[in-house]
Design a protein around this nucleic acid. Structure first.
Lengths: 360, 360
DNA sequence: GAAGGCGTTGCATTCGAATGCAGTCAATCG
DNA sequence: CGATTGACTGCATTCGAATGCAACGCCTTC
């Protein structure tokens, strides 16, 4: 038995009788049946008018669009996705990180996802323990795919695979598992920074790492250490921060305690900590930068370019990376079985004025 | 005619036969029918197990949960919201603003919305002209409510009212229309800043406003001007920035050209511009702050507290404001006809070291 | 003038979960 | 002991849009 058209949608009826403009009172959501009734066509025809590529006569299209406009009709995307089995949602997982360039990343990713015709379902993961809860909601909302700027463990990654929901990591790499990711080339960036610092004569280095469980920070500091070793520099003092500005300040003092006054260069795992180091060095220890101490960061966040800092750093091509992440995801949503792929982006070395650099 | 149970959901069948753990291959999404079949109950019972407050026997609940767990079943929130007529989505509209405190606002709002049991549908509005497109998507996704940190014009606001979708503005006030909003008390904040500056003897003021179409910036600068007039200070030089750091630098030079060298204090409509003004004044014009020039901002974003700046500013209680916004929205989702309400939050004056302040 | 074809249209069904209603069964009461 | 209550369960329908299928014109073609 087919559905009988509703007889009692007051908003629609009112519009039908009085030709009310789209700003009229409309207590109930307008459905395709309401539009169909006003346009004197079937619900199917209304649906076809809003389905690209479907076959509708100009006359019917005109009538439907007129009625739809008059009633303020918009197709119910929820009902649509139930039958098309495509939710149109991309889940975006981000940590509640204080990373200075997060706003930029977020806005680029969001733009990219919108441009691809999907909607952004945002999940902020304050602590790792929330991840499971967040994933539960993801599954319930049938997301077409996910961009993750947070950690996922092996079991969680397996669950994505089982549910055939593609994930693309943004500047994260799950250890061991092959996964699709877009990252800046941390090793290459650190290599360039270290080479230039060493070329300028620096020999006594301090390193400020990020959180212990953060793969990115780990990769950056390990690459830096490896490259220093390559240059024959073994005695490196390492302290750990939390990626925040204040932890950079603390890290500077810790380095000074451990490494003494002949520290020549500080290599930080991100910009926020580097700025903290600069401020502590200049304003609390009275050092001149870069004459007495060179400081380098990583990311190229906006504040690092401010006149007070002019931080020497590696700038992430955020826009291109975000676009790549979205493109890779879209591709995998269309063809779920494409191989995992890690795409590396070389950062741009921003010379700045916070470090003495030899020629590369 | 009732639905006949599906006979051919391979993933579910496999799980049924082999007692496969939840990590098994599962090519098709698991539905409540699959769970029902495995648990040997009806679909209704499965539904009731996942509906808080419904009546199910312990035995059935156990069987259903076991089956659900085994199959990795999660209720399809899309199907659910189709029949319950509650999408569980809160639309979050934010500008692609460079506002330094946006990450904080975003993360607090997102947390609040999650805690309220809703999901965040994120829309970034890069330019005002996109708003219409974004709203179209909002309507299609049947959002339960919206938190807007962007401008909406009168017609758009009317459309929200017609569709009975509650909106709460975050630090925005649509002109004229009464709307529900959470804002910091701009006027009060500026009043306190100006009073303290005047009390310290400042007489020649420059003002750096924000974008011309931004109500917040307008309210801030107008309040500042009004308060200066109250103190008998009429000759104020006003320039306009775009809320970004670089525009603060430009604004400083513009002020100097127009107001000459005897400028004593610069009042900025936000922190980012104030930091630009400070850098331009110190590093480009060689002024000492606060001895030669006082600079104040507004918002209390993180970088304003950095050692290099110590900006004198009004700190927004972001967390409380975000919580209030969510609470007000939740209230209006439950009872759509509550009166519009504007809730004002007094900011905290952060004395900083970028301005000479008399006693309040 | 009959046959074939294409472009449209409407009917009926479908997606997955929630729910009103009616039926079942056991426990309790008069 | 029969009746009533209450807890539980299943059946059938519903939400709103998409779509396979069949029917209907209208035009072309011989």
């Amino acid at each position: 038995m087919g559905r009988k058209p509703r007889e009692n949608n007051p908003g629609a009826v009112m519009a039908e009788l009085e030709d009310t403009p789209s700003t009229a009172a409309r207590p109930t959501a307008v459905t395709s049946y309401d539009v169909a009734r006003v346009a004197r066509v079937s619900q199917s025809s209304v649906s076809r008018v809003f389905t690209p590529g479907a076959s509708v006569s100009p006359e019917v299209r005109r009538r439907v669009l007129r009625a739809a406009n008059q009633l303020g009709y918009q197709p119910n995307a929820i009902a649509r996705s139930l039958i098309t089995r495509r939710s149109g949602f991309v889940g975006l997982l981000i940590g509640a990180s204080t990373n200075l360039y997060y706003p930029e990343v977020l806005s680029e990713l969001s733009r990219g996802i919108s441009d691809a015709g999907s909607r952004v379902l945002l999940f902020t993961v304050d602590s790792e323990s929330e991840t499971e809860t967040v994933l539960t909601h993801l599954w319930r909302y049938q997301v077409d795919g996910v961009i993750a700027a947070t950690r996922l463990d092996a079991a969680q990654l397996t669950e994505f695979a089982n549910r055939r929901v593609p994930v693309v990591f943004y500047n994260r790499m799950p250890p061991d598992n092959p996964a699709t990711a877009v990252t800046v080339d941390h090793a290459e960036g650190e290599r360039r920074l270290i080479d230039r610092l060493v070329a300028a004569g620096h020999r006594r280095f301090g390193i400020v790492g990020g959180p212990a469980d953060n793969m990115v920070s780990l990769e950056r500091t390990e690459s830096a250490i490896a490259r220093l070793r390559h240059h024959g520099i073994d005695s490196v003092t390492i302290v750990r921060g939390d990626y925040g500005y204040q932890s950079g300040i603390d890290a500077f003092h810790a380095l000074r305690r451990e490494a003494g006054r002949d520290l020549q260069a500080v290599v930080c795992a991100n910009d926020a900590m580097a700025l903290g180091v600069m401020d502590a060095a200049r304003l609390q220890a009275g050092l001149r930068i870069p004459q007495d101490l060179s400081v380098v960061g990583f990311d190229g966040a906006e504040p690092s370019r401010w006149l007070s800092y002019g931080l020497t750093t590696i700038r992430q091509p955020v826009r291109r990376m975000a676009e790549a992440a979205v493109a890779m995801l879209v591709e995998r949503i269309a063809k779920p079985d494409i191989e995992p792929e890690r795409r590396l982006y070389a950062g741009e070395l921003v010379e700045g004025i916070s470090a003495r650099l030899g020629k590369g």
